[in-house]
Write a protein that binds this DNA or RNA. Structure first.
Lengths: 344, 344
DNA sequence: TTGTATGCGTTATCAT
DNA sequence: ATGATAACGCATACAA
């Protein structure tokens, strides 16, 4: 029973017609008049035999796999605590379903196997690529661009012509830090969400710097730490900041995931939020509003980001020219209670 | 440049050999002696032309897509806050890479589109199925079983012969609740992780009941609420429990994700953990140890669960008979500080 | 309105 | 040691 599936040939034989007719009926080809009774019979027999056209054969002849590939530029070790991924999946699957396509998912380890998606593209295993979190040091990306393979970035890659959907990470971070400054803070620590190979990480850091500069607060590199997507890194970096005795009254942590860890490090030292240290996050993950105190954070429209990226890619796949090339979605600062009241 | 890829024909022509030779060289077919210089040249030219065999053509002839399908039985609305998914992905991708296969992912909405994976199976779009969180009311599963399509469940489906990898949800929950009872609690609330269509949810609830029964504590249905995977549901159900004035000194929340929400509801009422309400979770998600107080919870080896399930499936795919059919992985209660000290 | 023939790009079975 | 040829299952231009 395993392996030998029913083919269009079987259906044709059972229905007493040719394979062509079967194909015509099942694909509902327009401009072809078939006798209703024939159509009816074929349809019914196909149904009852459980016939489903072979995907490989169909892909081979149609030159489209009907699959889009999602690639995550995280090392496998980091993916398990990344809430952004599930939000991306939600948006993607929604759109993918609408277009009767499928989603293939993979991660690109920074070290090796960088060319996985190049291979998948060349093998036509996927029709298009969605790349979440492009890295500046990703060489395969430039090849991809040169070959003109349909791709959309969730995030940005300065200097490339890729279509992308993103938020303004820099301005958003600036907004968050400005909020802290407005509350009277001048010693503000910063823990980035990832290492500087990720464009989003450098942009958020730049936003932090801009806010400082605008307020005339000198930049102090001893207040800055680099995270790596995980809760644990948030804890470690905040602990390190504390261990070194660096003085600060507020912290901008560039990802809510890391905030969880950072807050734990604070609590461990009996430091209260927001009385001793005000906290601003980034992403507005589902749990942010349920933290104690509820977290003030930059709302990132993650699901929508994924939806738009997927729509854009599918638009390109359908050969449309008028699909807008690059989109920046709005963020907003969601003020809750982790920064306390305004001290004007 | 888009679409017209280089084929084995192109490579053969450029190398001055036949397509057969190209295939032989690139697939490193054993038992065939090719002149080293020919092999060398073919290899080099294929490399420099960026030739990658067409996946569809290869799948068509080899009858294997080299893809395994992961199906999540969550509605799309629930997936975005589900940390279990990312852990599953981590384990899966690791194994899938080892075997040079790919991963396709999809969700099965409870309402409709139940037969998605049946179609993917019949279309041979995937070689095997990994189903995370089987539901009792999933009819397509029985068809799948009847057709003998390779599948492994992450979770269990009583009454079916599917291979599966799971933990003993009942015993684990019982262990967690027993811990609470041992600490002197008798009024213990319970918020399940999902609705009763999910086998894991009913098993965990049963464990709760067993612990009560063993301790001679009467079951009180007013202490039980049903969650739906989300942080929000944890909040709502705990709030509801509180609103109704139900008395309890401890709560077993069958998923750490929901604990986040449940704890927020407690805090909102100025109830302290563990002094006023002791809390035990389930899953031991990455953030659990960083909660305040650090969460006592049942450690679920989620990544390992996925790894084993994937190994099992690939084992079946390779036609091996000796792959163990069903596995139960160990859990353990990680005692942290959300239950306070023993009040003996 | 329906059937025949061809090609999609590969692998596998033969010959040479 | 290498090349021609036949599937794999489908879609489709073309013939009937």
């Amino acid at each position: 029973m395993v392996g030998n599936r029913v083919t269009s040939h079987d259906v044709a034989k059972a229905a007493g017609v040719s394979r062509t007719t079967v194909s015509l009926v099942l694909n509902d080809v327009q401009g072809v008049k078939l006798r209703p009774e024939t159509r009816q019979r074929v349809f019914q027999i196909a149904e009852q035999m459980g016939y489903v056209p072979n995907a490989a054969a169909r892909a081979l002849v149609s030159q489209r796999a009907q699959i889009i590939g999602l690639f995550l530029t995280r090392s496998s070790h980091h993916i398990s605590s990344d809430a952004f991924i599930t939000q991306t999946l939600e948006g993607l699957l929604e759109v993918v379903h609408q277009h009767d396509m499928r989603l293939m998912i993979d991660i690109i380890e920074p070290e090796h196997q960088k060319e996985i998606y190049l291979e998948m593209a060349r093998a036509k295993r996927i029709d298009g690529i969605l790349l979440s979190g492009p890295r500046l040091d990703d060489e395969a990306l430039w090849v991809l661009e040169k070959e003109g393979f349909p791709a959309v970035l969730i995030g940005q890659l300065p200097g490339s012509d890729f279509c992308f959907v993103d938020v303004d990470n820099c301005a958003s971070a600036e907004m968050a830090v400005a909020h802290l400054i407005q509350l009277g803070h001048t010693r503000i620590a910063c823990i980035t969400n990832a290492n500087p190979a990720y464009t989003a990480a450098v942009d958020r850091l730049r936003g932090y710097q801009n806010a400082l500069e605008t307020a005339g607060i000198p930049f102090d590199h001893t207040l800055v730490r680099s995270g790596d997507f995980t809760v644990d890194s948030g804890y470690r970096q905040m602990k390190d900041l504390l261990d070194r005795g660096t003085q600060f009254t507020a912290a901008f942590v560039a990802s809510d995931t890391l905030v969880l860890g950072a807050k734990a490090a604070l609590v461990e030292r009996n430091l209260r939020v927001p009385q001793d240290v005000a906290l601003v996050g980034f992403d507005d993950l589902p749990f942010a509003q349920y933290m104690h105190p509820p977290l003030t954070t930059v709302h990132l429209p993650a699901v929508e980001l994924a939806r738009q990226a997927c729509n854009l890619l599918i638009c390109m796949l359908q050969g449309e020219q008028n699909c807008s090339q690059q989109m920046i979605l709005d963020t907003r600062l969601v003020i809750r209670q982790s920064c306390g009241a305004i001290v004007s």
